[in-house]
Structure formats: structure tokens, C-alpha cells
Write a protein that binds this DNA or RNA. Structure first.
Lengths: 157, 157
DNA sequence: CTGTTAATGAAAATGATTTTCATTAAATAG
DNA sequence: CTATTTAATGAAAATCATTTTCATTAACAG
């Protein structure tokens, strides 16, 4: 089998192995769900989605795997203020659209927006550079989120 | 007593009353601590600070009061990813410096920075306006946070 | 195939926050 | 000022997401 041909195993196997992690059925399943779902899954969401097919994968493993993935930078751990963490696949090899979030504080609806992203990212990069220098930080990540009321909840007032 | 002379009661009494809340000793104490402390207190931090003088104010009341203040917009509820909420006095009548946060993911140190704030705020306002229109949201708030390793933790690698 | 050790599941533990409920005390009417 | 109404409170119990413990299983190197 020529290089780059191991399609059936998913592109992440390499990265995973390189970091000294074993490839298990549970991890495979979790990565698979995450890579195929559109964002914002909680640990339990993932557990529920996986369970029918992989009934032997427990919630504990989901939490542990998400922690690993988050540390590897393959997954973003998000907080929308509803008391449970949400997880979002970071980027596939194809380069997934970068986006930020707009959260309704009433019904917890979340909008992924890409509008203005270019300007935001540009400013962020500058700011990042400045902060790194001034405060001697090695910055790995950032969040921008807007909070408010969505159309529905705003009307209910 | 002439209008505007009730200094001893703190400037927030008006706002508080207007919203139909009663003025209690506990709330007074919590507001007082918050307004005089430099940011990032957890509910328990506040409870501990208050306890010596107001030993009859319980942790439950601290949580309840923070919730009220947060809804009134007098306090920001922050999440730095360490599993407990932090609270920060929003703005006194004098207009407190607006700032954002830089968080060390290792030791949880938080830097309040005001550098680049003007550019950030300007961009944010534009973005906000655009998002409100496009997604029909009424935006009340935003967060920007950078995550990384502080000088110390970066060295420990 | 076999041994080493990371990964796992189930159950228990943790810990921040919330709820319950009987009691207390602000605000307000008299 | 006193009585009345009802929001606010404390203590203890409940909740609930996440983590830990520990005995068992299974990746993978040799």
C-alpha cells in the first residue's frame, strides 16, 4: 500500500500514534462522530450518538477521550454558559472554516458566524503578537463570543 | 436630606430599588467587596472575605446575589476554564477601564490587558451591529479571551 | 503468541451550584 | 410606630457534570 493511501483508518491515525496514544475502538468512534457532526456536542450527546453502535463505550471514556483530543488540539472545548462543556472538531485536513459564536442567553441557541471573520482574525493576530511580547505568554488559542437574545427570546419579553 | 445626598448607602441603591429588589445587609456587603476588590473573585472567595464581618451571610446568599447582580448587568460572570465561575464588578459610576483577559491554561493566572482595547472595541462594535442585523439578535455582551502559557509555565516545559 | 502497560467500564467520589423549606426581616399600609 | 405582606435568607439536602478509583481488558512491541 502506497503512502497516503490508508483511507479506511482516517487521517488522524498518524497524529494519534505519533503522540504515543493507542488506537482503540472507542476513540475511533468518538473521532468519527465528531468529524461528521456539525459542532457543539456535549460529552453526553456524543455518548448517546455512539451508544447504539458501540454500546460498550462508556461515558467515562468519552470524557477521557475528549480530554486527550482537546490537549492534542484536535478538538475545541467550548463553554456557552449552560453548565456543560461542548466540543467541536477543530480542523480536518481540508481546513475547516474558522468561525466564532453568537449565543442566546435565554434559550442557549448558538449561531456560528463567519461574517467579519477576516477582520477579526487579522486584529486577533496582531493583538496576540503584542500580548505575547508584552506579557511573555505563549498564546495557543482565543475565544470571541457575543451574548444576547435571539429573535424569538427577544420577542417574548 | 436633599436628593443625591445619600452617600452612606452607596450609589447602587437607586438602581437596585428601581428593579424591585430589597436592600439587605448581605447584598450590601457583597456589593461592597466586589466594588473594592480587583477582579476575578469566585463565590467562595467572596464568602470568605465577607464572613469575618458578616458571619451570618451564607454561601447560598452569595450565589443568589451574584446571580441577581449578573442579571442586572452590574457584575460580569466569567469563566476561565478552571471549573468555577469568577465575578468582576462591571462599572462604577466613574466608568471603570474596559479590559479583556489573557489566561494561562497551566496555572490559571489571569492578566487583565487594556492594550489594543480601542481597536478591539471598535471592531467589536461594528461586528456587533452587523450580527444584530443579520441574525436578529439583541446583543448585550461579548467576551474575548486569549489562552496560552505564561512565562513561568512556558519555561517548565 | 506473549508480556507490558495504556485504556477501559462501573461505581463511587467530588465539588460547584441549586433547590427546598421553614424562618426572618424589608418595604409598605394603616 | 406597628402590623402585614412577601421577598430574602440559612442550613441542609439535592443536583449534576465531571473526575477518580480500581480491577479488568486489550493495544501493540518484541
Amino acid at each position: 500500500m502506497a503512502r497516503g493511501e490508508c483511507r479506511r483508518q482516517g487521517w488522524w491515525h498518524g497524529k494519534f500514534r505519533d503522540c504515543g496514544y493507542r488506537l482503540t475502538l472507542g476513540r475511533e468512534a468518538i473521532l468519527d462522530i465528531l468529524s461528521r457532526s456539525e459542532g457543539h456536542l456535549s460529552a453526553e450527546d456524543i455518548y448517546v450518538k455512539i451508544h447504539p453502535r458501540y454500546s460498550n463505550v462508556g461515558l467515562t471514556t468519552v470524557y477521557r477521550t475528549l480530554d486527550v483530543l482537546s490537549n492534542l488540539g484536535m478538538v475545541y472545548k467550548l463553554d456557552f454558559g449552560d453548565g456543560r462543556a461542548r466540543y467541536e472538531f477543530a480542523e480536518g485536513p481540508k481546513g475547516v472554516h474558522h468561525h466564532h459564536h453568537l449565543v442566546c442567553t435565554q434559550c442557549n441557541k448558538v449561531v456560528d458566524y463567519t461574517d467579519f471573520i477576516d477582520e477579526e482574525v487579522e486584529l486577533l493576530q496582531q493583538t496576540e503578537k503584542g500580548l505575547e511580547k508584552k506579557y511573555n505568554f505563549k498564546i495557543n488559542n482565543h475565544i470571541i463570543q457575543f451574548y444576547g437574545l435571539c429573535e424569538k427570546c427577544s420577542g417574548k419579553k
